[in-house]
């Protein structure tokens, strides 16, 4: 039960102690507490199987929580779902479209199912077709569209009834760079007027970093951290990151030698890559290379970059997000 002191109406979306277990041994989502404010873009970041989609499905009322509650605009989803439906827009992870229907017919169908009046619906559908560059394909059956166009339509369907809470479940998965750029532009546009709350699940660090006001990192159903991306990156240390890719996984002796000779404090590995973080890291680069070349490993590649959310995840879990 939510705490009496909570003012749930001040949040677009809130969860209290939300848990979901598909079996008795483990929880897909474990005691999740979220408080997302109106106009906020909230990124839910985590590897595959972290519990992101399960969370979204519970937020939408499609999945019953094992325990805990979900509130949309202060109203609990289990009791007020029918009333809240018109305020929620969803872009599912998979493109869910009817292959035989055209682009226009899709928008018309979903709009009608949300009770959007005919004239408004026609205008909104036209606007969305233009915004998502679907004009040329408006009368084509969806089965003839490319994957990227289908994803755009998938997102347009989430917006056709003008919802004020939009949930985007892995919206850029499988998109080509051009479509992804268009999608990010659209999401940024939606967030610009601060009228809508956007919840975004992704396993793309870049996407979460660029689009989100706040990011929650989820792993094994638990929320590890939740803050603004800049704060999260800052929390794991100052300076840049030097990535050194080797031909094989380095031994503990090699790593210890680097640590001692180059006085490196923040060092970690991910598979056959060594990540070294610190201020003025380039000054220590020759020493590190010397240590590595004196051992039997061969350097394949090196890269210098600033901190990312992936580094945050790596620090928190000890493994790369891609290993998830």
């Amino acid at each position: 039960m939510h705490r009496p002191s909570d003012d749930l109406t001040s949040f677009s979306v809130a969860t209290r102690n939300l848990s979901k277990g598909y079996d008795k041994r483990s929880l897909a989502v474990d005691s999740l507490d979220l408080s997302i404010k109106p106009g906020e873009v909230f990124g839910l970041l985590g590897p595959n199987g972290a519990g992101k989609t399960t969370t979204i499905r519970m937020l939408l009322g499609l999945l019953k929580p094992t325990s805990g509650q979900v509130f949309i605009h202060g109203e609990e989803i289990t009791t007020g779902r029918q009333k809240l439906k018109g305020r929620l827009g969803v872009c599912p992870q998979e493109t869910v479209l009817w292959p035989e229907l055209t682009v226009s017919e899709h928008l018309n169908l979903i709009g009608r199912m949300y009770d959007v009046p005919g004239r408004t619906l026609r205008a909104d559908a036209e606007r969305l077709i233009t915004e998502f560059s679907l004009g040329e394909k408006r009368n084509q059956p969806v089965k003839r569209l490319s994957g990227g166009l289908k994803r755009r339509l998938n997102l347009a369907l989430a917006l056709v009834h003008g919802p004020d809470v939009i949930m985007l479940d892995e919206p850029s998965a499988g998109l080509d760079p051009q479509s992804r750029a268009l999608l990010w532009e659209r999401i940024t546009g939606l967030a610009r007027d601060r009228q809508r709350t956007i919840i975004l699940t992704t396993h793309s660090m870049e996407e979460a970093d660029r689009l989100s006001d706040r990011v929650g990192i989820l792993d094994h159903g638990k929320m590890l951290v939740l803050d603004a991306p800049e704060n999260l990156k800052r929390s794991i240390g100052e300076g840049d990151v030097l990535e050194i890719e080797l031909d094989r996984v380095p031994s503990q002796e090699v790593l210890e030698a680097i640590r001692q000779r180059s006085q490196v404090e923040h060092m970690s590995t991910s598979a056959n890559t060594i990540l070294v973080r610190g201020l003025n890291i380039m000054e220590r680069f020759p020493g590190i290379v010397g240590t590595l070349t004196s051992s039997t490993v061969v350097i394949q590649n090196t890269r210098l970059r600033p901190n990312t959310l992936e580094d945050v995840f790596l620090k928190l879990t000890g493994r790369s997000l891609r290993d998830g």
């Binding site: 499609l62 929620l88 969803v90 599912p92 998979e94 869910v96 199912m113």
Partner: peptide, 11 residues
């Protein structure tokens, strides 16, 4: 194919 779920999200 998820059509029912999409429709369930509507009114």
């Amino acid at each position: 194919q998820g059509h029912l779920e999409r429709l369930k999200l509507t009114r």
